[in-house]
Simulated scan of single mutants.
Amino acid sequence: MKFDTAYSLNLDEKLSIYDVRELNFDETAAYDSDKDHFLCPNDACRAAFEAGNTLSTFNAKNVNYRRTPHFKNKSGTRHIDGCRYASNHKGAAGESDDDREDHFPSEFVLTRRTYPRKMPLAGAEGQPPQDLPEIPTTRTNASVSPSDATPDKTSVFAHPVECYVSNIDDKDKLKAMPLKIGEHTATYWAFFKKIEYLQDNKGLIYWGRIKAIKDYTNSFRIDFEKKVWLDKKPYSVNVYLSKKLIDNYRKRKAFLEQIKAAASSDQPLYCFFYGVTPELKQVPSKKNPEQTFGVFSANIENLDHLIIREAPGLG
């Protein structure tokens, strides 16, 4: 069984698997999910067992997405009777182990979540700190409280993108699931806009297949395959990532590793971004600087809101 929320023993807080990925790559946070202990998010279930009754993670530390990240039960993980996270619990949310993300956040929060550490880090051997309060071991059949459910909001851009990509073959579902960003509310299907239709509406999540990634050593330009048609003329589309933006990014190492690998990859890759809408600009020609040509372009303002990834099924 897979699910995307668990209790972090080191942080004394419930985290989504996307939060865990954020922490692993954040150079400003001393965190390593391999040294954390993840327990059942059901408060009553967690209280019924010792701290060693842990879950495992999948795709928590891989810079590139391979399959939908998640938490899962180990072979020896125990749960109280009726816990929705038990592997044999019938009708459990997210019970399938396929590559589909079933937990759709209803709001993408633009302010990044912070993770204040409330407990000391686990030791080098990955053992829980010795001064942790005892967890009651009396088994109960307490029901799951609403707070145990997957959070309705996320500040991690990868989460709504994964929902869209992994469910692309179920348009009815995407058209039924609501998503709020800022003051704008729409369905997942309406919020994700193909790059060639960027003129239809502003303030959406734009995406498209990458034609090329230009590596300027300290900055990058992402060119899209599809063109935008305006006044019966086709215009190229690109987004630019400045040196200053990248240098100040808290996940700089992971991002550079990912984009450099993407620039040399033969696999079909897609770029998703939010926060800017490419506009038609006149750019000087390299061959003749006195001449210009039109291109739809935008400078990315927040790397937290940009993803480059494989996206099987998008075509």
Score class of each variant (00 low, 15 high):
S106T: 15
T114Q: 08
K171G: 10
N201G: 09
A190E: 02
D99Q: 00
R100W: 07
H103R: 14
S147Q: 01
Y188Q: 09
L204D: 13
A93W: 07
L110A: 13
K171Y: 01
S147N: 01
L110H: 06
M119A: 15
V156Q: 05
T187V: 03
H159C: 00
L174Q: 08
T138L: 10
H103Y: 12
D98E: 11
D152V: 10
A176M: 06
R100D: 11
P160N: 09
A142P: 11
H103S: 07
P120M: 13
S106V: 15
I195K: 12
F108D: 13
M177C: 00
S147M: 00
K180D: 10
A158P: 02
A149D: 00
P116A: 01
K118W: 05
T138S: 06
V144L: 02
Y197H: 15
D215L: 01
H89I: 03
L132T: 06
F191S: 14
G91A: 09
D148I: 00
T217F: 07
E134N: 14
G182F: 01
S219R: 02
G182T: 11
Y188R: 09
D148N: 03
K214F: 11
E95W: 04
D102S: 06
P160V: 10
V109L: 13
E183L: 13
T111H: 06
R100I: 06
K175S: 11
Q127M: 09
Y115D: 07
A124D: 15
S96F: 09
T150P: 04
A158K: 13
A149Q: 04
A176V: 04
A124V: 13
L110S: 15
K194C: 02
